[in-house]
């Protein structure tokens, strides 16, 4: 049974179809990256999972329980980080930690996390930098070593050193059987931490793939320099897209088989040719554009 199971989730705001029938599942111990361009429906999905907003239809099950009906029970086992960490201005970091601790009523690891993040909990949060606010948000999300972590842009505003601390914590938690569902725009972070990703666009899932499978996708960037005159219209072939025109050449994006392009290039005098496997960033961007 998947730890997180979303089936045909729909959430509309008036005429806007924020989430339009998405389905995905996440297994125990996985770090699942949830990606997509701005406004694709990532945060709406996360808010439905947290029962902040109610789906129009579909179901969300977390640890075998309904995310809406069993919301209170489930939240004992969920650590959550908002994409926009909002704090009580007049409280110190410690006030936040104590409040959250009193609501959960469980043993917490806030002290250890405070040290790991090098966070001063005695200061009022009004004057904190965005990085320090993010640290406090992370401490509140991680402090009960939850079975499920739902994170919306976890490393936003953090320096690379602290980003590493977050990755270490994620790794430690998943090694202990926790499951992580995180949205991110940081593709290097996704590449480094996630085992699988779901890509959402315009409220619909366009792909759910392992990172490895994505990397193995046949996508290439081909740069060809011609000795003679060439007609770019001749490269208007299926699966091939001209990314850039150079003074005596073309940069092409190829999806799938390279053979038709190679054959076409063979009809010209080629001065130089460079073929690169597309990076993960290029692959994601390709999905975003679809």
């Amino acid at each position: 049974m998947p730890t997180i199971d979303i089936q045909n989730l729909k959430k509309y705001f008036g005429k806007v179809k924020a989430v339009d029938g998405i389905s995905l599942s996440v297994e125990q111990g996985e770090i699942f990256g949830f990606l997509g361009p701005n406004g694709a429906g990532k945060t709406t999905t996360i808010r439905c999972m947290m029962d902040f907003i109610r789906p129009l239809s579909g179901s969300i099950e977390i640890l075998g329980k309904n995310a809406q009906k069993d919301s209170v029970e489930l939240k004992k086992q969920i650590g959550y980080l908002s994409g926009y960490v909002s704090l009580y201005d007049k409280w110190t970091g410690q006030d936040h930690i104590d409040f959250v601790s009193s609501l959960n009523g469980a043993k917490d690891h806030s002290k250890e996390l405070t040290e790991r993040f090098d966070f001063d909990p005695t200061k009022k949060t009004k004057g904190l930098s965005s990085g320090n606010k993010q640290k406090l948000g992370l401490i509140m999300a991680f402090m009960f070593q939850p079975k499920i972590l739902i994170l919306d842009e976890p490393t936003i505003a953090l320096d690379p050193l602290l980003q590493n601390t977050v990755y270490e914590l994620l790794s430690e938690l998943t090694n202990n059987g926790s499951t992580v569902f995180m949205s991110s725009h940081n593709l290097a972070e996704v590449d480094r931490t996630c085992s699988r990703v779901g890509i959402i666009k315009d409220g619909k899932i366009v792909a759910v793939q392992s990172i490895q499978a994505l990397k193995e996708m046949r996508m290439y960037t081909v740069t060809a320099y011609f000795s003679d005159h060439f007609d770019k219209r001749e490269f208007d072939l299926e699966g091939i897209e001209i990314i850039k025109e150079l003074p005596s050449g073309l940069v092409l994006n190829v999806r799938g088989d390279l053979d038709p392009l190679i054959k076409k290039l063979g009809q010209f005098d080629i001065k130089d040719l460079e073929i690169e496997h597309a990076s993960l960033d290029d692959i994601f961007l390709e999905y975003y554009k679809k």
Partner: peptide, 9 residues
């Protein structure tokens, strides 16, 4: 979001 994300109805 702070109380809502905790086990409180």
């Amino acid at each position: 979001e702070i109380p809502l994300s905790r086990p409180v109805s």
